[in-house]
Design a binder for these strands. Structure first.
Lengths: 319, 319
DNA sequence: ACACTCTATCGAATTTATAGATGAACTTCA
DNA sequence: TGAAGTTCATCTATAAATTCGATAGAGTGT
């Protein structure tokens, strides 16, 4: 990698001259002698082999080449600004980056919504989002990969994790429209269900392997990924439980049909899983993580697409 | 704007040390003394107030802060590389940037396809795409705003522009499914059409105002924008001509119905407009513009989404 | 015509980066 | 376990760069 001797300062001077429209004005703005500005630009032009400003008039004007190169220079300067902003944030106690893990069953638009506001509130904190299933979610928090996680509450049992309930996800059993079970109205008895393949989300982590939740059929296909399960349900490979919010569109479009296993109905009405925000008690959350946790726990919603206010509304929401 | 005294060289050293995993190795790679590398990193850490490497072990390792800041530094370095690549391209005769204008009727995916390959062939040439209607297209080429344009051939008549035909666009008359005309099968006589509003694309530039193409009705609504015309047709406000490729999906979905004005049918079968690539004869095209022209004139297609080969195929297509 | 502002240039002073040498800590390998 | 080879921090002298301040020539505006 070769920088051909270019320096950041040259870019800054280039951008400043382009903005102010004059070498002298740029010098004043940068608190430097005008000759320093002239020197910097001349050297930059020498190094690039390109003339950036046309000095034939009283005030210099960008050449075609200068105009074409300016956007890249501006971007470099603003990236450097972002770099030092982030560094300053770190010195002031902000976590360098924030990793979170979200259970695949959790409605992703809640997360997207929160992160939209988060990005405005903490522009310098890079975030890393993992999506995992069941025990794997808690594991990423336990091993410290992620500062906070959103998981099914029972998956973190046994580990010392702090839980805050933030939402319940309604689970429904569904089957493809073309599946035999879809034709049955009303509660479906157990022994009928047992004739068909049940698609069961399996825990790749082994943390909850012992427990099986709502497994009614003898013929189980175990799938590690909720998206894959979704696809298989759509493909008519079997029946299985899904979070309501993920299959609502399919039900409305007639691609999937909600079915009512007898046992699910009696056992506590419709199945509702409670999702918790979890984090390790022995690791203090940084300011950004704390803010995001509070936001999610409080159930706040940011301004929605189509709301009035635009970016301004985001800034307000971020306090 | 304050750069807090940061220098590009520091970023380069930072990235190099992170890549090589050692101060000494970085020094060798940069052809500098090891003390210079140590000095650069120390100074950077001082300026940021953040420790970037943990030197407690034999080999330095990135601190958490260093790891978080590294991506931004890498990006800055690569942006600077792009900047000097672009500058070098300009010195070697590449045009600083390429502006083209495309008639709204032209199938945009042809352009997107060409630009995908173009972006690989000429990564340093920023492109600017205008979309305009009728005479406005030619005007942007005539006044020099755009080096090349894609326009209906008749819109450039009278001006000295070089034309190359590259494609014909089939025009069809359509009306909303719920429009009375949609119910009529077979050719529709003129005096029947005259009872309904015809939506006519108007030329905002005045270049082709004299000529009216295919205007059959007495009741005309003139619209300056093809997308708006599309929307109005969908809304059932009238009938009008549209490029076939733009309304095919609507016809298939039953939102629009193709109708057959008697006069259109007799006058030269189905209306086909020939689209030309145009440019000024008195302005030599730069290498990038010439390449793009040749590509479009030759009717080449780049690798499509879903084709094998991925990025490699793009590079091959770009020669 | 006059005062003002602009850019280019020059020399001197200052700041900054660099190589090279040295020492302490660590790794590797026999 | 010991010897040879690395690695990084530190120091000094030197080389390179950037900066200022002054000056000159040219354009602007009143």
């Amino acid at each position: 990698m070769n920088l051909s001797g270019l320096s950041l300062d040259q870019f800054l001077v280039f951008v400043t001259v382009a903005e102010t429209g004059s070498f002298s004005a740029a010098a004043r703005q940068l608190n430097r002698a005008q000759s320093a500005v002239t020197y910097a630009i001349q050297k930059l032009e020498d190094q690039l082999g390109v003339s950036l400003f046309d000095r034939s008039a009283y005030r210099p004007s960008l050449t075609e080449a200068g105009a074409a190169l300016l956007p890249r220079a501006t971007r470099i300067i603003s990236d450097v600004g972002a770099f030092s902003d982030q560094a300053r944030g770190i010195t002031e106690g902000l976590e360098p980056e924030l990793a979170i893990v979200v259970d695949a069953m959790f409605p992703m638009d809640r997360i997207v919504d929160a992160l939209r506001v988060f990005g405005v509130r903490y522009p310098t904190v890079p975030t890393r989002i993992f999506v995992a299933s069941m025990g794997a979610t808690a594991n990423l928090v336990i091993d410290g990969t992620c500062a906070i996680g959103i998981a099914l509450s029972f998956t973190s049992q046994g580990a010392e994790l702090i839980e805050h309930e933030i939402e319940t996800v309604r689970m429904v059993a569904v089957a493809s429209q073309c599946h035999p079970l879809a034709a049955i109205e009303g509660p479906i008895p157990n022994d009928e269900l047992q004739n068909y393949v049940q698609l069961v989300l399996t825990d790749p982590s082994g943390r909850t392997d012992k427990r099986d939740h709502g497994v009614l059929s003898r013929r189980n296909w175990r799938i590690g990924d909720l998206g894959a399960k979704h696809t298989m349900l759509l493909g008519g490979l079997g029946w299985g439980g899904m979070p309501l919010h993920m299959i609502q569109a399919d039900v409305a479009a007639g691609r999937l049909q909600i079915i009512r296993p007898e046992e699910w109905g009696t056992r506590g009405g419709d199945a509702a899983l409670s999702m918790c925000l979890i984090h390790r008690p022995d690791r203090a959350l940084g300011p950004a993580a704390r803010w995001l946790s509070d936001w999610l726990i409080s159930g706040k919603r940011g301004p929605q697409r189509g709301d009035a206010g635009g970016y301004r509304a985001l800034v307000d929401a971020a306090e």
